[in-house]
Design a protein around this nucleic acid. Structure first.
Length: 299
DNA sequence: AAACTGCTCAACCGCATTTGA
DNA sequence: TTCAAATGCGGTTGAGCAGTT
């Protein structure tokens, strides 16, 4: 049978939804055939888990979620999965010869962000976090970059979290989601089995409380005093902790690209509502780093 | 207005692991 | 115990969109 690839159509989506509503998920290859979908089982599984499943949360990641991702990635980012001692030995050997590739724990991180998929978190990391690391000519997995994240960006996220402005409106979230091109309306069948539950605002608040529990474990390095780090960017020039003091290499290229960026790349210009905040790049305010680097105090 | 550039994210691919006959 | 199929995971790709020139 000829297999279809590429974007899913509305028709395919409803076939998949109706089939799962009647028979449940699992046995994906069989499901694909039985539902009359010209897709691989893998493709069906991915479409369901990453997009169609009712509890998949749409819209931008909240500061809380971003914070959680940063913290959990710094915890588990490059760690190998839990291994038996013998397997660990084999893995170490293999790793030594460069065969083993870094094992990121996206799925594990996603477990702590209800409604968010590993794919989404992975995309966030690659497009936002790694981008910032590249701009600083740093390795996103390095201890140095991790410290920078903890000392400068996490406090900012915490600030955003505690700000009354950051109360997410479901309307905003859905509006943002609706802007996506592939985001067509999915109508779930009325007689959905109990294991398929529609996400509502209650479940969103559950997410928030869950995140808060974990967030309380966020540990900043000793040099990072929250009140110190919450100051204006000018004051940051004299912050004593400098994550880049030990061999950080911010080359001319990085500085050059910084100088070409407009003010709106950093500051809270035009930041009037939630959608501005959640996509606000000031959470990743780079000028502090550049200012700091250019500061005479460092030289 | 058109061309170009960069970004996002859904979907694919390959590989590892798990399952079950 | 073996092996094929199914499942899960992380890396990568490319279409579509928005912003810039």
């Amino acid at each position: 049978m000829e297999l279809r690839k590429g974007p899913w159509t509305l028709e395919e989506d409803s076939l998949l939804i109706h089939y799962i509503a009647c028979h449940g998920e699992g046995q994906w290859n069989l499901l694909a055939k039985s539902a009359g979908l010209k897709r691989t089982g893998k493709s069906c599984r991915l479409r369901w888990l990453n997009y169609l499943k009712p509890d998949v949360k749409r819209g931008n990641l909240t500061p809380e979620e971003q914070l959680l991702i940063l913290e959990l990635h710094s915890k588990w980012g490059n760690r190998l999965p839990i291994l038996h001692s013998t397997l660990r030995f084999v893995t170490v050997v293999v790793f030594k010869f460069g065969v083993y590739k870094n094992t990121y724990r996206w799925a594990r991180i996603a477990q702590h962000l209800p409604g968010r998929t590993d794919n989404e978190i992975k995309n966030y990391w690659r497009t936002r976090v790694q981008k910032k690391a590249r701009q600083l000519n740093a390795d996103a997995n390095s201890a140095l970059f991790r410290d920078a994240v903890r000392c400068y960006w996490m406090p900012r996220l915490l600030e955003k979290r505690s700000s009354p402005q950051t109360t997410q409106s479901p309307l905003h979230a859905s509006a943002a989601a609706a802007k996506r091109t592939n985001d067509h309306v999915v109508h779930h069948p009325p007689n959905t089995p109990s294991k398929i539950q529609h996400q509502d605002f209650e479940s969103s608040s559950t997410t928030a409380s869950c995140s808060t529990t974990v967030l309380s474990q966020v540990v900043l390095p000793p040099a990072c005093n929250m009140s110190e780090l919450s100051r204006s960017s000018d004051d940051l020039n004299v912050v004593t902790f400098n994550p880049f003091s030990s061999g950080f290499n911010l080359d001319d290229r990085a500085l050059g690209s910084a100088s070409t960026l407009s003010g709106s790349d950093y500051g809270p210009v035009g930041m009037n509502n939630w959608s501005d905040i959640i996509v606000d790049d000031s959470l990743w305010c780079m000028d502090e780093f550049y200012d700091m680097f250019k500061s005479p105090a460092l030289s």
